[in-house]
Amino acid sequence: MYGVNEGVAEDLRSGRFGAGFSGAEMLENSAAQRADSPDGAGTIGNIQAANPYMVASGVNVHYGDNHAIRNVSLEIGKNEVIALIGPSGCGKTTFLRCLNRMNDTIESARVTGEITLDGHEIHDKSLDVVALRARVGMVFQKPNPFPKSIYDNVAYGPRIHGLASTRAELDEIVHGSLQRAGLWEEVKNRLHEPGTGLSGGQQQRLCIARTIAVSPEVILMDEPCSALDPIATARIEDLIDELRRNYAIVIVTHSMQQAARVSQRTAYFHLGDLVEVDATNKVFSNPGHRLTEDYITGRFG
């Protein structure tokens, strides 16, 4: 809670929120939502996590003239998986990319609002984007191993951040990361073969190993299984469940079954609005908003 309060206080001072949505209202909304009584304005359900680690409040993203996400406030908790669902173009991925400032790489993107990581504003000058991305790792939709060896793929992050001073330490990091990504047994005899030679599911686990090699605190996953077959998907889902013990995980998915299987909380986005957030079993068994209900019952999407 420290994070969100600080963020909102900061906004009150800087007047950063848009018209008609002051920081004070935001606080009231939070209070209302805590009481689980949707008031119709903005998000319904409960945006708060049990153990918040990243807190987004009043995030807006514009791509040129296109207002891609509107006033999204959401907490991401430690040791839990939060699934972002919603129809294509609803802003899930855009929101995800705000969390490690990957939207910076898009020329026309403009992000406003507060996002804090462990209480510190991520757009603040004192937090370098390079350091932020080391703490908030990302796994992409399509497996994208570098055209290097398996070993070098995993060692890439630790090398650029200087996490290992000796070869033995680096070996240990690579070994540990591959182990945790559940890939070690399959690749231990071919560490120096190209990572692009692995199967799709193995490549995606390699990308996860690469991400956890820099010991992030939060892992963002952008539809990590959409390019994989059901067996590889099941392995990744098991892996996500295990990783939950050490990391905060945000996963964007198009598969509602997947959201139901791996996540503790679910956030439903619709056309740039965060419509509903709640515990996953609540969202799927008893959705609070008609749009959410229509989506999860397959009426559109």
């Binding site: 990957m102 790489t105 932020l132 992409f140 570098f146 890439y156 992050g157 650029i160 991400t211």
Partner: peptide
């Protein structure tokens, strides 16, 4: 070189110049 390579490297916290030198140019 696919943009995914660049994104993958940047998302690991590599700087632009590290990305160019170690991922884009080798690829």
């Amino acid at each position: 070189v696919p943009a995914a390579m660049r994104d993958g490297s940047l998302a690991l916290g590599a700087t632009r110049s590290e990305t160019v030198k170690q991922v884009m140019l080798p690829a």
